[in-house]
Amino acid sequence: RGFLEKAAVKKMAKAIMADPNKADEVYKKWADKGYTLTQMSNFLKSKTAGKYDRVYNGYVIHLD
């Protein structure tokens, strides 16, 4: 289950990176699912340092 969630989160993160207008909708879905910042950090780990920082930081702001 965790692997599928991670894959889904990364897919949506890539969608945000391609079209930032989708961010609020995606952040709301993640918040509704109760994803914590720790979970998001783990889901968005990448071999490329900083690749998903913008998405993660946007989610931090959304939760605030």
Rank of each mutant, 00 (worst) to 15 (best):
Y59T: 01
V55H: 02
V9K: 01
K10G: 03
E5W: 06
D24P: 14
N21A: 12
T38S: 11
K33A: 13
L4M: 11
K22A: 08
A49Y: 09
S46E: 07
T36M: 03
L4C: 15
D24H: 11
K33F: 10
G58A: 04
A13N: 01
G58K: 01
Y59N: 01
V60C: 11
R1I: 14
D24Q: 13
M40A: 03
T38D: 12
F3M: 10
I16K: 00
K45Q: 12
K22I: 15
K14P: 01
R1K: 14
K33H: 09
A18G: 06
N21I: 08
A15Q: 12
A13T: 01
N21K: 12
V55L: 02
L44T: 00
W30M: 02
V55R: 00
L63V: 05
S46C: 12
A8M: 13
K29M: 15
K28D: 05
L37G: 04
V9G: 01
L44Y: 01
P20I: 08
Y35D: 00
G50W: 04
D19N: 09
T38L: 12
I61P: 01
Y56E: 02
D64H: 13
T48L: 07
Y52F: 09
N21W: 10
V60Y: 05
G34Q: 05
F43I: 08
N57R: 12
R54D: 15
Y59I: 02
L44S: 00
A49E: 12
A31Y: 09
S46W: 06
A13Y: 02
N42T: 09
G34Y: 03
G34W: 03
Y52E: 01
V55Y: 02
D24V: 09
D64G: 15
A23N: 02
D32W: 07
A31L: 06
M17N: 05
A23T: 04
I16H: 00
A13F: 03
P20R: 05
T38Q: 14
M40F: 01
Y52M: 04
A13L: 04
W30I: 00
K47A: 09
A49M: 11
L63T: 04
V55M: 02
S46M: 05
D53C: 11
V26Y: 08
K28N: 08
G34M: 04
L4K: 14
Y56M: 09
F43Y: 07
T38E: 14
F3H: 13
K22H: 06
N21Y: 09
Y56F: 13
L44A: 00
R1A: 14
A23V: 03
D64C: 15
Y27N: 01
Q39D: 12
M17K: 04
N42E: 13
D19P: 01
M12L: 09
L37V: 09
D19R: 04
N42Q: 13
M12E: 14
F3N: 13
G34N: 06
L44P: 01
Y52G: 02
K29Q: 14
T48M: 08
T36R: 03
D19G: 03
D64E: 15
T38P: 10
L63Y: 03
N57W: 15
V60F: 06
Y27V: 01
A8G: 09
V55E: 02
K14L: 11
E25I: 07
K10M: 11
K51F: 11
E25M: 11
R54S: 15
L37E: 05
K10W: 07
A13C: 05
A18S: 11
P20Q: 08
G2M: 11
N42L: 11
P20G: 07
T38W: 11
N42A: 13
Y35N: 00
T48V: 13
T38N: 10
V55S: 01
A18H: 11
E25F: 09
G50P: 04
K47W: 06
D53Q: 07
V9R: 01
K28I: 07
Y52R: 01
R1F: 12
A49N: 11
A23R: 05
K45P: 02
G50L: 05
Q39I: 08
A18C: 15
S41W: 15
N21H: 10
G34I: 03
K11D: 07
K14V: 07
G58F: 03
A31K: 09
M12P: 01
Y59E: 01
S41P: 01
I16V: 11
K47L: 05
D24L: 12
W30P: 00
L63M: 06
P20A: 07
N21E: 11
Y35S: 00
A31M: 09
A23S: 08
A49F: 09
G34E: 04
E25S: 09
Y56R: 02
K45S: 12
K29E: 13
A15H: 07
Y35V: 04
N57A: 13
Y59L: 01
R54W: 14
D53S: 07
I16M: 05
D53F: 06
D24N: 11
G2L: 13
T38F: 11
V55I: 11
F3S: 13
H62P: 00
R1C: 15
Y59P: 01
K28S: 10
G58E: 05
S41Y: 13
R1Y: 07
N57M: 12
N42Y: 14
V9Y: 02
A31D: 05
I61A: 14
K47P: 09
K11F: 08
K33Q: 12
D64W: 11
L37H: 04
A7V: 13
Y27G: 00
I16W: 01
T36K: 03
V26D: 00
R54E: 15
I16T: 01
G50A: 05
S41D: 08
V55Q: 02
I61D: 13
V60P: 01
K22Y: 07
A13R: 02
V55T: 02
Y59C: 02
T36F: 03
S41H: 13
E25Q: 09
D32R: 10
K28Y: 04
D32I: 09
M40R: 00
D64I: 15
Y35F: 06
D53R: 07
Y52W: 07
M17Q: 05
F3W: 15
F3C: 15
K6L: 09
K29D: 11
S46K: 05
F3E: 12
I16R: 00
D53M: 07
D32V: 09
A8R: 14
Y35I: 06
K6C: 14
W30Q: 00
K11T: 07
M40P: 00
A31I: 05
W30C: 03
I16L: 06
F3Y: 14
A8S: 10
R54L: 13
G58R: 02
V26N: 03
D32T: 10
N42R: 13
A13H: 00
K22W: 05
G58N: 04
T36V: 03
K29H: 14
E25T: 08
D32Y: 08
N21T: 14
R54G: 12
T36G: 06
E5Q: 08
K11G: 06
K10L: 14
A7D: 08
P20S: 07
L4D: 12
K22L: 14
Y35C: 05
K45F: 08
E5Y: 06
I61L: 13
G34R: 05
Y52S: 02
A49T: 10
R54Q: 14
K22P: 01
N57E: 14
N21F: 09
K14H: 09
A31W: 06
V55G: 01
A49D: 12
G34H: 07
L37K: 10
D64F: 12
K14A: 12
F43E: 02
T38M: 12
V26W: 03
A31R: 09
M17T: 04
A18F: 08
F43A: 05
Y59A: 01
D53W: 08
L4A: 12
K6M: 13
P20K: 05
G50R: 06
W30R: 00
G50T: 07
M12D: 15
V55K: 01
A7G: 07
D64T: 15
G58V: 02
T36L: 03
V55F: 03
I16F: 01
T38C: 15
R54A: 15
L4T: 12
H62F: 15
A49L: 11
S41I: 07
A15V: 11
L44V: 01
E25Y: 09
A15W: 07
D32M: 12
Y35Q: 00
W30T: 00
Y56D: 01
E5D: 09
N42M: 12
I16D: 00
M17I: 12
N42F: 12
A49Q: 11
R54C: 15
D19H: 06
L44G: 00
Y56V: 07
A18I: 10
A49W: 07
K47T: 13
K22V: 13
V60N: 04
N21M: 13
K45T: 12
H62L: 04
E5F: 06
A18R: 12
L44W: 02
H62D: 01
K10Q: 13
E5S: 06
A18T: 09
E5C: 12
M40Q: 01
L4R: 15
M12T: 04
R1G: 15
H62V: 04
Q39G: 03
D32K: 13
R54F: 10
A31E: 08
M12G: 07
K45L: 10
Y52I: 02
A7P: 04
G58D: 05
V9I: 10
A15C: 12
L4P: 08
K51V: 08
D19I: 03
R54Y: 13
G50E: 05
K11A: 12
M40H: 00
